[in-house]
Design a binder for these strands. Structure first.
Lengths: 225, 225
DNA sequence: CCATAATTGCGTAATTAAAACACAAACATA
DNA sequence: TATGTTTGTGTTTTAATTACGCAATTATGG
């Protein structure tokens, strides 16, 4: 018997806001099944495109957003996860910086919306499962790989990084020990630039040095919180 | 245009031998493409079976081996990874205990063979990529999840565990500190049984207590080397 | 049968990393 | 100019890791 299985890709895209809150990008489905319900963006893979190309293409079509970081998450293949037919979904998670995050939300409000991950609507298909897995992965991964920087502006004050970690990990972080720890890796460049937000001493801006990170990684020096 | 993509599953199955060496299960391909070359076992998913079911079925058919542990690894979807047509492969990695390992090798030598991961033949398709990713995953994962026990007999002496870790991590381990660390988690039951292998004081046997592990995990006590 | 080598089990000391906390500097605001 | 707020840089205390000593228990060789 001929195989009749369709392949789709879906992406859980995260954004960060220094309110602080972590958001995920959802679209409202236009067609059945689950018409009018919220879902994570995605779609079917074309015959000659890579999975990553399919994800970028669908994201652009459905939301207008370009991700700054993309990583494969897990493949969901339960035989009945789609009521129409057998569809397996290769799920990814993506991260976007605040500038992308804001522009996307402003210009494509019709197409897609950002939701606080602690205040989500019901989701279509098994998308709640996918989203839960994505959240778990991001939470775990920021502690042993420097992906958190992909959620911040290229130039950021330390307090942004600290708040991001504190929010995602769901626990308070000692500002001073956190700073020492991160700086000890030697992966951040301190810039000759400061930013002032309301009261208080202006903060120095930092930039994540990706080249240096890979060099240190190859030398066995690991990023680990 | 109709989507025409086939879905296969492949499994990198690991076994451990206290020589010490880590082995992986390969099959010799009977048909083109890559006829006569070594490959990791796998095959196409049937329309109404789950991905996991497909893997267990293919493993039984092709090698007669039943895995003691199975986990999804990654989905490989490069458009040209299969010369016949577009095929995406959902790859898994599996672990088997020494009894399964030995029986399988003895009874199905025609069908499949075990290879030392440090002495592998050339592999078909992109299977070398898959295997590399599987090795990386297992190496990393034994340090933060207790999956190493799935490569040992249910009852094992501490030296087996130590050699397994030392072999996989590729570095010497202080026997005494390793023992203290593992025992401090409280996930091992010490048995009233000893085993003697050649010279030296006989070793107590231990058993991994899975229920206790999950209980401790839910209390926030983590397995971490 | 005894000395020796090998392996296990248990302990303690030295070193390193993590956590807790004090305080001055630099700004906004009133 | 006084006050509150946030940042930057320490030090002290505590916990974890690493290094290592040594007795117990067996197999082996003479």
């Amino acid at each position: 018997m001929e195989q009749d299985i369709k392949v789709s890709v879906d992406a859980v895209v995260f954004g960060y806001d220094p309110e602080p809150k972590v958001s995920v990008l959802l679209i409202k489905r236009k067609f059945a099944p689950y018409q009018g319900e919220w879902a994570i963006p995605g779609g079917f893979v074309k015959n000659h495109e890579s999975l990553e190309h399919a994800i970028y293409r669908e994201l652009t079509e459905e939301t207008g957003i370009i991700m700054d970081y993309l990583e494969q998450l897990y493949t969901f293949g339960h035989p009945n996860r789609d009521p129409r037919s057998r569809v397996i979904s290769v799920a990814y998670f993506g991260l976007v910086r605040p500038d992308t995050y804001k522009i996307g939300a402003a210009t494509d409000a019709e197409k897609a919306e950002w939701f606080d991950i602690n205040d989500l609507p019901p989701l279509a298909f098994d998308h709640q499962n996918i989203l839960n897995k994505a959240i778990d992965r991001v939470r775990a991964k920021i502690t042993y790989e420097p992906i958190g920087f992909e959620l911040l502006d290229e130039r950021f004050p330390f307090s942004d990084l600290e708040n991001l970690y504190s929010t995602l990990l769901g626990r308070p972080i000692d500002r001073r020990n956190f700073r020492k720890k991160i700086l000890s890796f030697g992966m951040l460049d301190e810039l000759d630039e400061k930013v002032s937000r309301g009261a208080g001493r202006p903060a120095n801006l930092f930039k994540f040095n990706k080249e240096r990170y890979f060099q240190l990684k190859s030398e066995g020096i690991l990023f680990e919180i």
